[in-house]
Design a protein around this nucleic acid. Sequence first.
DNA 1: CCAATCCAATCAATCGATTGATTAATTTTG
DNA 2: CAAAATTAATCAATCGATTGATTGGATTGG
Lengths: 214, 214
Amino acid sequence: MEKEKTDKKDHILDVAEKVFSDLGFDGASTRMISGEAGVNMAMLNYYFGSKEGLFLAVFERKISSFQTLLQNIGNEGISSWEKLEKCIDKYVDRIIVNNCFQKLINREISISKRTDLSDKITEILMTNVLEFKKIFDEGIKSGSFHKDTDTQLLIATVFGTKNYIINAPQIASLLLGHDIRDEKFLEEKLKPRMKKYMKRLLKAYLMNDDDNEK
Amino acid sequence: MEKEKTDKKDHILDVAEKVFSDLGFDGASTRMISGEAGVNMAMLNYYFGSKEGLFLAVFERKISSFQTLLQNIGNEGISSWEKLEKCIDKYVDRIIVNNCFQKLINREISISKRTDLSDKITEILMTNVLEFKKIFDEGIKSGSFHKDTDTQLLIATVFGTKNYIINAPQIASLLLGHDIRDEKFLEEKLKPRMKKYMKRLLKAYLMNDDDNEK
DNA sequence: CCAATCCAATCAATCGATTGATTAATTTTG
DNA sequence: CAAAATTAATCAATCGATTGATTGGATTGG
């Protein structure tokens, strides 16, 4: 029976994630979510306290597993560049699977007013950001990366490039000549292509011939 | 008195643009907009028919100024790299001035419904996208840019890096150690820094030493 | 005077949240 | 073990607040 409970909560979270992703936080109503999940409205507040609590629960469930993923890479005994390559691989894999959730994040983070909620989102996202930054800084310190690297804007590039493709699918589809939402294209074509591209871009910027390496 | 009317409508549109940008379409209420604009609620429907009509009016007013930002540069008699540098300058200048409207665009384009609107947004955004693409392709053809450049993903990087900073100001502020919304910081620090960074990033990627230039 | 402009008041609908009652499951107790 | 007591889970009903929208009358200017 313990299992039942967890399953039900998980099911609510699944539905909530879908509805929030499609309609945004404000656009989604608790009635809609509870209705689609087949549970009573009061259950949402019973389980998650509030609409905001539900949203955060959706958020934290998705994000936590990725956090530890990046953190482990950061602690491995490999070169900074190798760490970076691994992070890119994991990151590209991740975001392409969960692209509807990513869209949700990017939409809600751009809302300025909802401070309590967006503060929490920011805090969670920052851990991933800082994990990348740590690797950049470490690489600069060890001399393997260009020493006047703008790590902060480079992070904007890493996350921004991905966001652009996921968040503006109409434009990305026109640009790439394929429907972005085609799973097969994403998995077989875009994923390896993005990995290769990001690595080449970062390598060119971090390790060009001005003062080190080759 | 015609003037009065136009001024008032324009003022409403100014406020609406700001509020929609901060809170999103669903998050913004017509009361809030009318209150902040100092007009009666009923005036919004009187002038614009509905909330959605107001939203569309905000867009259409801005739309015209958006086209042909980069088009002249493409036809100048200078090298591809020089064109690219000019485009970056113009682009960075531009987005920092209108960043709240940019936020609005980037948020609404990620919403799957409201197709009539997002089609229009897509069309407008594509003109700038294609201008960059034209320069990239031209540079590759002439041999000044690396020949296996992924121009399409590079465009995602150019626009995505900017979007990330504008759209996730909380994260960008934490990352940069300054409040992104500080006009002085934007103008005096971030703008030149972004220009320099983007040029160095593109140059490293487009003109590294694998097979051409230096 | 009349059409355009404006506004206070109000509309039905929906929002998130809470209530008290009821059932199911678990724990305690004799 | 079984009855009693307690806790957890679920429900229908409804709360006050707010939403976008509309009305009918006041005000204005030509």
